[in-house]
Design a protein around this nucleic acid. Sequence first.
RNA 1: GAUCCCGUGGUCCAGCGGCAACGACGGCCGGUUUACACCCGGGCAACGAUGGUUCGAGUCCAUCCGGGAUCACCA
Length: 1024
Amino acid sequence: MATELAKQYDPKEAQQRWLHFWNENKFFHSDPDANRKPFTIVIPPPNVTGALHMGHALNNTLQDVLIRWRRMQGYNALWMPGTDHAGIATQAMVERRLAEDEKKTRHDVDRDELVRRIWQWKDQYEKRIIGQLRELGCSCDWERLRFTLDPMCARAVRQTFFQMFKDGLIFRGKRLVNWDTHLQTSVADDETYTEDTKSGFWTFKYQVRGGPGASATGEFIRFSTTRPETMLGDTAVCVHPSDERYKHLIGKTVTIPLVHREIPIIADGLLADPTLGTGCVKVTPAHDPNDYACSQRNPQIGIINILNPDGTINENGGKYKGLDRYKAREAVVADMEALGLFEGKEERIIPLKYSDRSKTPIEPYLSDQWFVKMGDLPAAGGEAPNATPPAANGGLARMAMEAVENGQVKFFPERYKNSYLDWLAEKRDWCISRQLWWGHRIPVWVMMDAAKGSLDEIKARLGRLKELRTKYAQVLVVNTAETEAAKAVGPHGQELTPFRFLACVAPGAEDVERELEAIGFVQDPDVLDTWFSSMLWPHSTLGWPEKTSELAYYYPTNVLVTSRDIITLWVARMVIAGLYNVGKVPFHHVYIHSKILDGFGEGMSKSKGNGIDPLDIIDRYGTDALRFIMVHLSTETQDSKMPVANVCPHCDTLVPVKQEHLSMRTRKVTCPNCKKPFRPGGPWPAADPELPTAKQASDRFDQGRNFANKLWNAARFLLLNLEGYRPGAIRPEELPIEDRWILSRLATTTAAVTEMLEGYKFSEAIRHIYEFTWSEFCDWYVEMSKGRLRDEAGRGTVQRVLVGVLDAILRLVQPVMPFVAESIWQTLNEVAPERSLPLAGIAERSVVIAAWPSFPAAWIDAATEARIARMQELVRNVREVRNRYMVDVKTPLNVSVRCSVSAADDFRALQPFIASLAGVGALHCGPDTTKPRQSATIVHPEFEAYVSLAGLIDPTAEVKRLEKQLAEKVKHLQGTRAKLSNASFVDKAPADVVQQQRDFVVELQNQIQTIESNLKELRHAAQE
RNA sequence: GAUCCCGUGGUCCAGCGGCAACGACGGCCGGUUUACACCCGGGCAACGAUGGUUCGAGUCCAUCCGGGAUCACCA
């Protein structure tokens, strides 16, 4: 009857088997259901280009723990999965491949073709990363898999954009972008890197003029720059307002000799730093972020762009037009020198920004972009109908701040709400356009040159537009506000209505789009920032803007689990979008987990090459081991360091990763054992077909693997002893003390674990489970059960308790270690399908849908726990004595215990356990017990035990040991007495603390007395 | 530069004002009898520095030192 189990748990077999089983049974599928309460989590969608790394493993394990736990609690649990199109990263990957494989740029294929290729790429990599998440055991509802670019999300994006446009929250503005002149595209900050580069540092001077149009004063003003060519686009010279050297020059002007433009000398405390350079700085708003900011503060100076997209100088550069910017630099320097205005050049090392893709220097470049207004809205009125009340008052940022301030959204740990609030408080407008082809195309059509053509043509066009606006008022918004002020002049000198129109079309109105195009509108070529679609994730995945039953049932979701680096980019924006679109926060809780750092305390990243591939860990230690460790290290405070080793692919030696292996691009390590080279492993291996790649390992995961195996073997022990198992009720009051003890501990543990999970204390929860399983159930209860399993009378009961407790352990551990739990559960179901805990009945057909345990508070029995604890103390102490005097376990020891009558009764009742656990032969106990000659003494507050050791003690050595011990005790006693003689301690400390100290003194005195009497005896013996 | 986080045995960590600081890994000693050498028992070993608050500080406050993260910036 006994089902045979292998001696060791085989994670691989279990993983494959149960993933299939769970999937077939649709345990993780959820539909709205009126009888149950929902519990919803949306996954932070991983990037489709990415491979799973440790951060994903941590993030998704924690979500899975929560969702599995709530599912067991009877909630209708939905974990919505999906992936993110991640505009820049994904397009960059495909473009890079295009360049490598076919030596083409995206301009060589066309927009449609590039997008088609990216979709192909996406399908392939989405499959991979979703497969990896499944391997992790994530219990997502895979039937609901979403993608931020799929039709459902696209519709939500269009609807949101349309509404915001209508409400006047989306506007057109200028912004400096990182311009890659080689690829002629803008690149995101995280697609650039900064490298120290040798550069010149030139100093020039301008002649100062008395004021606009006035003549030269004869004075010169000196300034330095690393980019002399930008001088052509300067619109001011700036000094610090309190800089005495230049105060008198403020308001005067200079003329840039090379372009003959007169520009003012202005004061700006934020831009100019008197301690740097000459203290005077040229201002080039179109080509420097700081200067741009300065021009925002001083709009009168203006902005002049001098660059073409290819990095050559444009018509604003006068005679330098057409020159490459570096050629122009040389020319400018030479010309200034010829004019006698060149003061000198130094060589300097400066940090220069490069494009990661073309490896060429970035140029800051001013361009037209779309923005979302975050700050206060202009006074109500105007064209915006303001259909959505939340945005009406303080603007989007304010609205999202309030959701956290008034507790609708709570952060765990709470301190992270500071990052959220601080960032939103800046109310910086959000630039949402990206010069890419992969993403949601901006749904705005532009008519640039409405005023071109004959008067009749213009009239016809404008008339047609007017018709469209009236006819399609519901789905078409035309914004003219931007250019209202700039009246255009028609070909015949007449004043026209604004010459540029921006039309935004609601989703699902393709016919309107075509009609717009027919009268000369062209769709904006840019796409939206990825976060624009990500921010809609909690409601777009549920079907919004349709009023779906899913949206009504699952929204708002319960908790968002993420890492702290996207609190601003993502969390804050989701709150904004949720409130704006649905009128409700997207989630009630935000749990921010720690980060996993490498062995040297640094964050893991692709560029550092210091990641760990979770699949290697799964391969070597099992998924449950990985998950156990992820949960175990999720404490509230610390990020965790994770030292890692490479497993040499030639000889299987573990080669610890050293810091020098990480320095950017170390791609080769030599095995210290077999001296052969290999490539270090990780989630981001470089392409290098020449070398075999190592797998990764880290002994941090031993504990997890060992625990899975421990569970397995505890189950194995039970199954070997379940012959004749009969289900039946368990009533603690009828059970022997050890049973009542383990049930008491189980009830305590279960309550604690539930509470810990409710507070997102993952690490503490798994600690409790681990401790209970290993140190109480396995180490003590299973050992104590062995006698009764052999005994006809007790066997039935103890089997039921063993099965019941194991059942509960499996339920508790399932959220964290589902595979081993299911393996054991299924085996147990074959032998003991009907169990007695927590309720009598047939066990569920899978542990993943089993009920979360909960036990009567009455089972918690402090008196019983104390009695077993006393026995454990005795056993531990006898073991210690045995160890100290090197007594074989096979040699029974005789023990006498002096203790109260009731304690003696307990000890006698527990004698079989004391005998088997500590190898005790005869046990005498009672108040009158005396110390036999030549015995070791165990002193405990409740008893004193003597272990007979005739002939086994070396009196001389023992005297030394006891003297040392005595000295320590005396010292401690003195310290405690001193504390008690301190009047303020006795006065001010709580009574129980004082009493503790008093009890402690008594205890110490007893111990000292015992040691002294033992010493006396031993000294006597030593003399003989 | 601003904000935040963290410094505890050799390594990785717990600790949320009160009996001589919890574990894991490694190293040490010993054992392994009918679940488990991925086992069992035992022992060794630690609060970054200086001040302060308090009867009492690893824990709270300040300063410093060291590490990290985020944001800004370096003419």
